[in-house]
Amino acid sequence: MLHGPARHAGPDPASGYKTRLGVVMFIIYCVVYTGFVMLNVLSEGRTMQVIVFGGLNLAVVYGFGLIVFALVLALIYNRLCTQKERELSGCDGAEEVGS
């Protein structure tokens, strides 16, 4: 069952929407990631040692935040993409959208 020929992708009516959404999400994350890098560079690490929450400093909170934020954005992206795929194809499952 798992090893038949690879499926050939067909047209994806949601492709344009997903590309635009992906670029927006990428830019949002890129800004937050760049903020982390530049904050460290410009303040030479001093800002990173500020305690911000529950005894944790900004370095730890921002670092964990970047990891969690990536997952949150990913889930939102998937939700919106799946909705659009269903809307444009009339299928129940995203896997059947194909392309």
Partner: peptide, 21 residues
């Protein structure tokens, strides 16, 4: 760890579906 994980955002939002397509 932060940088390696952040790279997956690029993979998801920009690369994953077009690469498969």
């Amino acid at each position: 760890s932060i940088g390696y994980l952040a790279g997956w955002v690029v993979a998801l939002f920009v690369v994953a579906e077009p690469m498969k397509r």
